[in-house]
Design a protein around this nucleic acid. Structure first.
Length: 736
DNA sequence: GAGTTTGAAACT
DNA sequence: CAGTTTCAAACTC
């Protein structure tokens, strides 16, 4: 059942999502403060051209949103919504957007499966999106719980199969804040609840324009097998805008999935962006019956930065295609995970299933991609792949599109697909026939252009990793089961903290050279920093998704030994102390804490009282340290000066080449003299002076100093002569 | 590049 | 917790 088909969704103008537009809508039901307005049964059953119904309640946390009344879709005057004749309910009182799927479509695959087609209102499909507004109140995009709705037609005796799926997306920096779902909390407790929290970088993000495009495939579990249509929610739902900010739009798009027999290969990419500008929606779409891929690329303006978020939940029979839309100049920020202290970006993505994960690597990119292979429940049918979904063995392109770029990545079912029975959402007998797939990918901030490489030719199982030296802000590949563990095991969350810590994402990581640790011990810097090995020189590396089991075990071992093993060692000190200090302190004995053996020195911080070092010289007043720092600074300055001088000299020579060409062309034969101008002399003298300074700083004897200077002088002369000779030959060639 | 030194991590 | 071993990075030649 689709609320809005991708096609229609794409036709919807963004403007209709503007809060202002919504505010202009006459409030047919002023004063409604419930979790969501319940459209009349007639309204709910009103079928659009897409047989979709959409009921949404929208509330914004911004003060500019004045809408406090529920607005039904029939009264919405925005063109886009009217086109869909979609009931649209706004309940700002609870800051909730309620998407209500009421119409269902018969699934061809379901029919083929022998299930009697039944029109079942897919009200059970629920999507909760919460956003932490400036006031700290969540913005809830919510699909109402159908079970609590009287009058919703359900299959008799299959109430449990109607169990709705919930997805909660929380936008905001407060990871500890739980989405407000009102009276539906009770329902959530008994049903699968999926929560994705997107950290906001700035508290003002609530007022910032947010545009969300979320395309998801809803788990068909809990839906009666008689349901001929896979539970799909599609459509744009939410728009928030402030007078001074671009509209924030949350688009929920769930394309039709008529091919229930496709392999549940999945990819989910959540790529948070560093630059708080936009949130890119990753559309995870199941192929339509026409086998056409629809990529929904809608810019999402989020104060915390751009994000690519793909949350996919599909039936086992639905082939998954992921389309990521992202506008350029976007950074990806990791989804915030609550409960993990210290990390800016944390992610909690509960997974009911244990999807397999495959790495996707794009050379030159610092993004890590993970293809999550759907863990399927026992499939009753062993359904052969339909023509459009014959992709169990066939790579399917994953379309990743941005505002300017569309990338395709072949999506091939995992070679090592795990048959892990997911946690049953409901006890309905239909569960057997459905497969629940859940995928989560969290990607640290990275400028969007970095993910522009053509993914078309990427082999399956590739991992998108940052290019060496290209900044360590790449996609962090988070295996689904890890994410699951994060939600289930707080200890494992530390691992993710390493993934998204500022340090991790701000500097390029040196390749490790591990030989014996399999990169599964803290000896390995990659592992210790919560990263997969990439472009490393390690041997027998297990720090990759291919050895997720071993790695997971290693992580657990480390965390058992030290729950803070993956926390950054350099953190904030106590109040009144330096901002940065080693969390444990060093234990140096011979280095004097003035070599990189010392973790404090390496981190360019001074040792503190918690250090157990012997003979420490890494303290504020240490003369050794001062000397060392002075020398280091001097060396740095010297290098800069030399570089500048040489650059200037080359520039001068080049300039002379240009200016003296006519003279040279005369064939005067006095070319070298032509080049020894005042500028060249000055540049040469600078080079010589630098050599003299260098000799002096390194306490070179006079003889050696003279030698260095003369040597430099020789170099300068050689440059001049070489340039002159080149100019002469060029001139000769020109004359010829 | 090979060998040595060093200190954190791992182990007992 | 302390002592020892293992390990990989830092360092030296």
């Amino acid at each position: 059942m689709d609320v809005v088909s991708p096609e229609l969704n794409s036709l919807l103008p963004d403007e209709i999502m503007d809060t202002e537009d919504i505010e202009d809508v006459p409030h047919s039901q002023p004063g409604t403060t419930g979790v969501h307005s319940e459209p009349s049964d007639d309204a709910m059953t009103t079928s659009t051209a897409t047989d979709s119904m959409l009921s949404a309640s929208l509330a914004t946390s911004t003060a500019t949103t004045k809408t406090t009344d529920s607005v039904t879709g029939t009264s919405v005057t925005t063109s886009g919504l009217q086109k869909l004749t979609t009931p649209f309910t706004i309940s700002p009182a609870n800051r909730q957007i309620i998407l209500n799927k009421v119409a269902s479509q018969a699934s061809e695959a379901a029919k083929s499966a022998g299930n009697p087609p039944q029109v079942i209102k897919q009200d059970g499909q629920k999507l909760l999106v919460t956003a932490i507004g400036k006031s700290g109140q969540p913005i809830v995009l919510q699909l109402p719980h159908t079970g609590s709705k009287p009058g919703v037609s359900q299959t008799a005796g299959d109430t449990k199969s109607q169990a709705p799926q919930f997805k909660v997306v929380t936008i905001g920096g407060r990871s500890d804040l739980k989405p407000v779902v009102g009276n539906q909390v009770t329902t959530l407790q008994t049903q699968q609840l999926k929560t994705v929290q997107i950290a906001k970088k700035t508290p003002a993000s609530s007022a910032a324009p947010i545009k969300f495009i979320i395309t998801k495939t809803v788990n068909s579990k809990g839906i009666s097998p008689q349901t001929s249509v896979p539970p799909v929610i599609t459509g744009r739902v939410l728009t928030q805008s402030s007078p001074v900010m671009p509209p924030r739009t949350i688009t929920l798009s769930e394309p039709h999935n008529t091919n229930l027999q496709s392999i549940p290969g999945k990819k989910i990419a959540i790529s948070p962006l560093k630059t708080p500008s936009k949130v890119t929606v990753v559309s995870v779409a199941s192929p339509t019956s026409s086998a056409s891929q629809k990529s929904v690329a809608l810019p999402v303006n989020v104060a915390l930065g751009q994000q690519i978020l793909t949350v996919q939940q599909s039936t086992s029979v639905s082939p998954v295609k992921v389309a990521t839309s992202q506008s350029t100049t976007q950074n990806i920020k990791p989804v915030a995970v609550g409960g993990v202290g210290g990390s800016q970006f944390k992610t909690i993505i509960p997974l009911a299933t244990q999807p397999n994960v495959q790495q996707i690597q794009v050379p030159g990119s610092r993004f890590h991609y993970v293809r999550l292979v759907t863990a399927t429940t026992a499939s009753s049918t062993g359904q052969p792949s339909g023509p459009s979904t014959s992709s169990i063995q066939t790579a399917k392109p994953m379309v990743v599109s941005t505002a300017a770029v569309r990338m395709s990545v072949p999506v091939v079912p995992a070679q090592t697909m795990k048959q892990v029975a997911p946690k049953p959402l409901t006890s309905g007998p239909q569960v057997v026939t459905t497969t629940q797939t859940q995928q989560r990918l969290i990607m640290p901030a990275t400028p969007l252009p970095q993910i522009q490489p053509n993914f078309t030719n990427l082999p399956p199982g590739t991992v998108l990793t940052p290019a060496p030296g290209g900044g360590n802000v790449g996609y962090a590949v988070v295996p689904a089961q890890y994410v699951t563990q994060v939600s289930e095991c707080s200890l494992c969350a530390f691992w993710f903290e390493g993934f998204f810590s500022a340090e991790t994402t701000s500097r390029p990581r040196k390749p490790c050279n591990c030989t014996k640790s399999q990169c599964l011990k803290l000896y390995c810097d990659c592992f210790a920093n919560g990263e997969f090995c990439n472009n490393c020189n390690c041997n027998n590396c297990f720090n990759n998704l291919e050895h997720e089991t071993e790695r997971l075990k290693a992580i657990k071992t480390c965390l058992d030994r030290n729950p803070e093993a993956f926390k950054p060692k350099i953190g904030k000190g106590k109040e009144g102390e330096s901002d940065r200090r080693h969390s444990k302190g060093c234990n140096c004995k011979r280095s004097g804490c003035l070599k990189n053996y010392c973790e404090c020195y390496e981190a360019k911080i001074m040792c503190s009282s918690i250090c157990k070092c012997i003979g420490c010289k890494n303290f504020e007043e240490s003369p050794e340290r001062k000397t060392l720092m002075h020398l280091a600074d001097a060396a740095e300055v010297r290098v800069q000066q030399q570089t500048a001088a040489k650059t200037k000299l080359s520039s001068q020579i080049s300039d002379l080449l240009m200016r003296t060409t006519p003279v040279i062309s005369s064939g005067s034969g006095r070319l070298p003299y032509t080049f020894v101008t005042k500028e060249v002399l000055e540049a040469t003298c600078e080079c010589l002076l630098e050599q003299a300074k260098k000799a002096e700083q390194t306490h070179q004897p006079q003889v050696e100093a003279e030698r260095m200077i003369l040597e430099e002088f020789g170099h300068c002369l050689m440059r001049i002569i070489s340039s002159a000779g080149k100019a002469k030959s060029d001139c000769a060639s020109i004359n010829c």
